[in-house]
Each structure stands twice: as structure tokens, then as C-alpha cells.
Nucleic acid binder design. Structure first.
Lengths: 211, 211
DNA sequence: CCTTTCAGTGAACATCTGTACACCCACAAC
DNA sequence: GTTGTGGGTGTACAGATGTTCACTGAAAGG
């Protein structure tokens, strides 16, 4: 099985290719429903291997899920990196961040959809892994926010709290973008989140941490 | 089957009781995983009826899900009603709303958990139903916000956008509360969302809609 | 060249799945 | 008091599920 495109492959290369195929098939099959509703046999059929071959790569759907968490958060960290880069450049913080968000969500619909779904509906271990990763992102973002103008007198707690709110809005926006295919509706979503972030920023510039 | 507690029941009462039992069993069984991963037979076993009896009440897990959406949003609307009442009373808007949120989420863990999960991971029709209900809530909240001091000059769009942000934060907070059992962590979550809403409100009071 | 390794095969299993069908019998209606 | 309705039962079936086991054959390694 697995279309080998005439070129010879080493054993390691081929194994990696099958692994990739399993990961991709899982992302595709779980787009509606969830990992918990996905069977090993469905995945195998989609990949084009026999069910038992699955075990050569993962020992359960759950551990497959954990691998997908890592992969998906690579995408999310790519996004954060772009947000940071846009913020350091001359661009407007809000517009730059939203541009990056929209761009990355489009490029990796599968990964962002995976995180959004399994975050609340995945197997317990997967949910936990995602929660941990999100917390790392919040921490990371908090250190960036400390460098913003206006937050120099803030407490660490307030920085974390604001960071958490940003991530919440980010995740919610990604979910909304994913749930539509109509471009005009997407523009509406983008316009809304633009306003939301601006309202929030007005508050942030006025904010004084209680000490 | 179904423990009849000595008291005689009319046919209609009994049917209603079984229906309730099915709804409750489904809420309980889907707490980890999701509707899409739930089988008719699991539900039947939990209720204590034979699988085929399920069809006397619902013709699929999906239509069962739609019934649960209605029921769950009754709980959510109860919450919104309390938020409104607290806001009209002398209480602080932020604290009053958070109190109501925590209270209702505790009282109907099952319903709020159901919405949070199936919103992103449920069968397509269920997802759509939830999305529609949430939009109704946003609309409802927007009309309330119009009565707040400071929003009298706002455009309708801005009111809707702010309302949408509040609902996003509300949903995210409910999810966080649901994902912990440790009271000290819950207090931390509550404190965080308190600060988040205060930051946001500072921005709201300064906001001028562009016309 | 001969041996080892190992990704993928194929058959077999016990269990679970949704759904069809014929049946039962307490309650409701006349 | 007879009849009928309708929630519930039990059996049955074809198909899907996770996992086991012994296997193949080609690449890797000596």
C-alpha cells in the first residue's frame, strides 16, 4: 500500500511517510466529531493500511492524539512568533495580530480546528496536554506584554490575567473563523474582533495595578 | 425496569420519567468524550431499558442532542436573567455577574459542560443549534447593554460586538470553572475574570463609536 | 551472501454497534 | 367489560470495533 512515487525510499523514510499519512488522515477524519469518536480502523482504512499496521506507529488513538497536540502547537507558536514580529515592526498591534491570526488559521485549518475541538472534547490526557500548552503560551505572551508601553508598572499577576484574556479572544476568534466558509462573514468576524481589541486596549492604557 | 417507587403512575407520567432518565443518562455519559462518541446502547443500559425502547422517545442520538440543547439553554437563560437582576439591583455589575455565573455553573455543571463540548465537537446539527442559541443570547445581551450608562451614543454594531465579547469571556470562564474541582483554583479563575472585566469596562467607559 | 530486522499482511476472536421484527400486558377509552 | 394503544421486552442479524497471532518479503547489517 501507500503510493510510492517510483523513487526508491529507505526504510526510515517510508516509515516516516506512513506516520505522516496517519497523522493527516486523523486530522481529516476528526474534523467533524472528535478523536473520541474516531476508530483505529477508520484511520487505517483512510491511510490505506491494514488495522494492525497502525500499532507499528502508535499504540492507541490517544497517543496519536498527543502527537497531534505537539504538532498543532507548533503551528500555534508559529502564529505567536508572527504576532510578535508584527508588533515589533511599525505595524499597528491590533491589525498586525489579527492579520497573522487569520493567515495562520487559514494555512493550518486542521491544526487550529484540532486544538479547538479536542481542548474540550478530546480524551482526558489530550485535554490536559492542550491545557498545559495553552498555559505555556499565556506565560510566553505575558513576558511580551511586559515590554509594551504602559504596562511597566503592572504586577505580574495582572500581566498574566491580561495575557489569558488575549488568548481567550484569540481562541474564540479562531473558532469563529473556522466555522464559516463565507468570506463576507469572515470579514465581519475580523471587524468585530478588531473593535473588541481596541476597546480592550483603551482600558489597558488606563489601567493601574493595585499594589 | 425503572424503579417505580410504589406510587402508581399514569402512562404519561411514566413516559416523561423515562424521557428524563434518558436525558440525564446522556448528560452523565457524555461528560468525558462527546455525543458523537456515545452509543444508543450505552444510554439504554445506563437508563435500564432495552435498546429498542430508546426509539419510543427519540429517533436518534442526534435528536436527543437537540432536546438537550434546548434544555441546556434554559439554564443559560436563567443565568442571564440573574445577571440582569443583579445589575439592576445595587450590586456591582462585575461582581454580581460573576457571582451569578459561578452559582449557575455549579448548579448545572451538566448543562454548561454539554454546551461547551457539543458547541465544537457535537454532531453538525447540534453545533448549529447551539450557535444559533448563542447568537440569540448575544442579541438579548446587546439590548441590555444599550441601557448601561455610557453606551447611549453607541452604534448598534458596537453594542453587538461588545456583547459578543462578553459572551466569549462568559463561555471561556464557564469552561475553566468546569475543568477544575479545586476550590482555590476556582477562586483564582474568578479573581482573574474579575480583573479582565474591570479592564474591559475601563475601555468601554471611554469608548466613542465612530459614525 | 547470509542473517536479522521490521513495516505491513491476513485471518480469527469476542464484543459492541444500530435497527428490524414479533411479542407482551397495563393502562386508557369506549 | 371489551378493545386498543403504546411503553417496554427479547431475539436476531449484519456490520464495525480493538487486539491477538503467525506470516511475508524487502531493506539493513554483518
Amino acid at each position: 500500500m501507500i503510493e510510492t512515487g517510483a523513487e526508491p525510499e529507505s526504510r526510515a523514510e517510508r516509515k516516516l511517510r506512513t506516520r505522516r499519512a496517519i497523522l493527516d488522515a486523523t486530522l481529516e477524519l476528526s474534523t467533524d466529531s472528535s478523536l473520541t469518536a474516531l476508530s483505529l480502523r477508520q484511520v487505517a482504512k483512510q491511510v490505506g493500511i491494514v488495522p494492525t499496521a497502525f500499532y507499528r506507529h502508535f499504540d492507541s488513538i490517544e497517543s496519536l492524539g498527543l502527537a497531534l497536540v505537539e504538532e498543532s502547537f507548533d503551528s500555534l507558536r508559529d502564529l505567536l512568533r508572527d504576532v510578535r514580529r508584527n508588533a515589533q515592526a511599525d505595524k499597528d498591534v491590533v491589525d498586525g495580530s489579527i492579520d497573522a491570526l487569520v493567515d495562520h488559521v487559514h494555512r493550518r485549518r486542521d491544526h487550529f480546528g484540532f486544538i479547538a475541538r479536542e481542548r474540550v472534547a478530546g480524551p482526558p490526557s489530550v485535554r490536559e496536554a492542550i491545557r498545559r500548552e495553552i498555559e505555556l503560551c499565556e506565560r510566553e505572551l505575558a513576558t511580551d506584554l511586559a515590554l509594551m508601553t504602559g504596562t511597566d508598572t503592572w504586577t505580574g499577576t495582572d500581566l498574566r490575567v491580561l495575557s489569558s484574556l488575549f488568548v481567550t479572544v484569540l481562541v474564540a476568534t479562531a473558532e469563529q473563523i473556522l466555522s464559516t466558509t463565507r468570506p463576507e462573514q469572515e470579514q465581519q468576524i475580523v471587524a468585530a474582533v478588531r473593535t473588541q481589541l481596541r476597546m480592550l486596549l483603551v482600558g489597558v492604557y488606563q489601567w493601574q495595578s493595585e499594589r
